Amino acid sequence: MTIVKKASLAVIQMEGLSKYFGDHRAVNNVSLEVKRGEIYGFVGLNGAGKTTTIKLLLSLLKPTTGSIYMMGSKVESGNYKLWNKVGYLEEATYYPGLTVFENLDIARRMQMISDRQSIDCVVEKLGLDAYKNKKAQNLSLGNKQRLGLAKAMIHNPEILILDEPINGLDPASVAEIREMLLDLSKNFGVTIFISSHLLEELTKLVDRIGIMHHGQLVKDIKMAQLEQSLQKRLLLDGRDKSAMSCILKEQGYDFEETMDRRLKLMDDDAILQPDRVAELLVSANQPPTHLSIVTEDLEGYFLRTIRSVIREGQS
């Protein structure tokens, strides 16, 4: 039976979601919400529980505890009508000897869509019109992925669940897919739940990001907040780093040497006023040959978050 969650405006909602395989907790008490038109990035190390969570989301697995709602309906095996609103892509599949149009016509019939114009609509939306009569095996990687997305979207879903949709694509194809997903989100109100290992690419795409580790959601953060949480550092190089180190130490700066033998300062004073550091070194006759402010990337933040969780678990 379908249960409507009127109290929540979330398009996707997980409440205390857990999945155990014997003693192994693949997913452990995960709760999160995704709003309409939002792009939610889902990341974690291999074995973190991402794929299991997605299978629970798609009702391919039954939760041990907790519940999932999409579009106000409870996700459960008997709720067939819900899947009229959901599209899913794990890996682009197609009949290689058939054209784009023929592949999409098969998808249309499998979705029991009577209107053949649905093919033209999704072809136009995904920019496949020029390739409509081209055999799938002759498409570029980017367009093969577009075809996979077109099949997932032939029924005009309100939610797209994408598991590693840009793996193996060249940079140009990745950019094409990114622009298309942004268009679907911003201009068509499609809610997108995307899992990917390409962390830097996610920063250009998602509104929020969730980090999984050992089955738990250890971080759920908006990109705007994440950008404020990224660590900054001042990098210095010079002809005599030993002399530079002595000068910085005398002035109370904390620093360490990087693997490429530069000096890294994390002090807020140094980061906010790098000109003062430069003046200090110049006046001591040790002018820096390199000075730059470097901001941590998403991969660095992700690894720092995971290390912090591991340390807490060991304490």
Rank of each mutant, 00 (worst) to 15 (best):
D23Q: 13
I211T: 10
T289H: 09
G300A: 04
K144L: 15
Y95R: 04
A26G: 08
K144E: 15
A278F: 02
P287L: 13
H155S: 04
G47P: 12
L82I: 13
Q225A: 12
R276Q: 14
L98R: 10
V190P: 03
H213T: 02
L265C: 06
L298K: 02
L198A: 07
E299V: 00
P96Q: 08
A107V: 02
V174D: 00
I306R: 05
I3N: 10
D240R: 04
A107H: 13
M14Y: 01
R304G: 06
D170C: 01
G37M: 09
L17R: 11
I192N: 05
G44N: 09
C246E: 13
T93R: 04
Y131R: 05
I166T: 15
F302P: 13
M110Y: 14
R262N: 06
D254Q: 09
G72F: 11
F21Y: 15
L205R: 14
K264F: 03
Y131K: 11
R116G: 05
D269H: 04
D129E: 15
M223D: 10
Y80H: 06
I310Q: 06
V43L: 01
G238I: 11
N103Q: 10
G72V: 03
S73I: 10
L32K: 07
N79P: 12
V75T: 04
M71C: 14
M153C: 12
V218F: 02
N84H: 11
K219W: 05
G49R: 12
V27I: 03
S229D: 15
Y301W: 05
I119Y: 04
N133A: 13
M71G: 14
V11K: 12
I113V: 14
E91N: 13
L147N: 06
E179A: 06
L45G: 11
R233E: 07
G66K: 00
F302L: 00
